[in-house]
Design a binder for these strands. Structure first.
Lengths: 179, 179
DNA sequence: CGGCATATCTTGACGATGACAAGTTTGTGC
DNA sequence: GCACAAACTTGTCATCGTCAAGATATGCCG
């Protein structure tokens, strides 16, 4: 957001994008800093300067993910639309989603990621309050669990979907089973 | 289940247990075969013979996990109890759960894991049929998503629970929000 | 009881990785 | 235009997963 690489042009951004697609393809565990550097055409130690270490890179991925999720949720006007937006975000940004909710992978106390996460969870919480009232937190937890579980099952490949399935309408139908 | 190590006593079991606790503590990505071997007091190449490679070890973890989950689900008699058992299994076996539904981590076509997984998913499917009928698969998906999402959020540390919270009753309350 | 096949484990090596230290190039601001 | 800092390179180290080859113990079959 504020760093301006000089020599390469925009190495930080290039590395971030490459990391996200690599995670989406082979998982966060298989991510290799040296491989990213190779693809970007820089030396093996170049990433260190932009993201202290591997966890630092994943921290940036998580922060960007929370920010993008926040933007996606902002466009949803009612409860079901929020759920659909959540699942749709996971399927369209699998690389980000695979990192965001797994704090063991990154520096969970990093100010940037904490800020982005708090802003997004506050949006979710607000939406739940509007839908269910703020006296009981069980419905909110149930709703979050439902969309999060569906998103997780899909992007982890645990849920075998027919190729033609419309994920959005499936998510809407499932969300509407909540009362 | 059928292998009987000779020299060490029961190396395969010891390695599996150590792997499960290590995954529960630091995540599957940080797992090190050499570290496991060190803790078991054997050479760094000893695990290779029992589990071809790292993915092979995780395959065994996943297979055992599905088998244990099946046993846990078998003791649940109604729909809500099944959901509670699912979440409880995740919290009591975080090391297994962190691997089972992430097939990129292991050999997803391994016969043992396929058999164990199919047996367990068939139990889930049967429970859903009894609760909702077999004409619509949306409620079953919603139910699985809900409990899976809740379990995932808890064991990944994304959900901050008050220390005293009873996970079982929370899971039951959330599951009962489904109609 | 004795030797042999085999399962179990060790030793040694290789390429790859993440992290660190120290040096080099390039742009920025005074 | 010059010091300074940011961006990147080169070199190195311990560690890791995997493979190959050897050592050792166990069970089997006569």
């Amino acid at each position: 957001m504020d760093e301006k690489p000089y020599h390469h042009g925009d190495l930080r951004r290039v590395l971030l994008d490459a990391a996200v697609t690599a995670i989406a393809e082979r998982g966060a565990a298989a991510l290799s800093l040296r491989d990213l550097a190779r693809r970007a055409g820089v030396s093996h130690a170049a990433p260190t300067h932009h993201f202290r270490d591997k966890a630092g890179l994943l921290t940036a991925v998580a922060a960007e993910g929370f920010s993008l999720l926040g933007k996606a949720l902002a466009e949803a006007d009612d409860f079901a639309a929020t759920g659909v937006a959540y699942v749709r975000f996971a399927t369209t940004h699998p690389g980000h989603f695979a990192v965001m909710f797994r704090p063991v992978l990154y520096h969970r106390d990093d100010p940037a990621v904490v800020a982005a996460r708090d802003r997004t969870t506050e949006m979710l919480r607000g939406g739940a309050r509007r839908a269910f009232g703020d006296d009981d937190r069980v419905p909110a937890l149930a709703a979050w669990s439902l969309v999060h579980g569906m998103a997780t099952l899909i992007i982890d490949g645990a849920l075998e979907l027919d190729p033609g399935t419309d994920v959005a309408s499936l998510a809407r139908a499932a969300a509407l089973r909540l009362r």
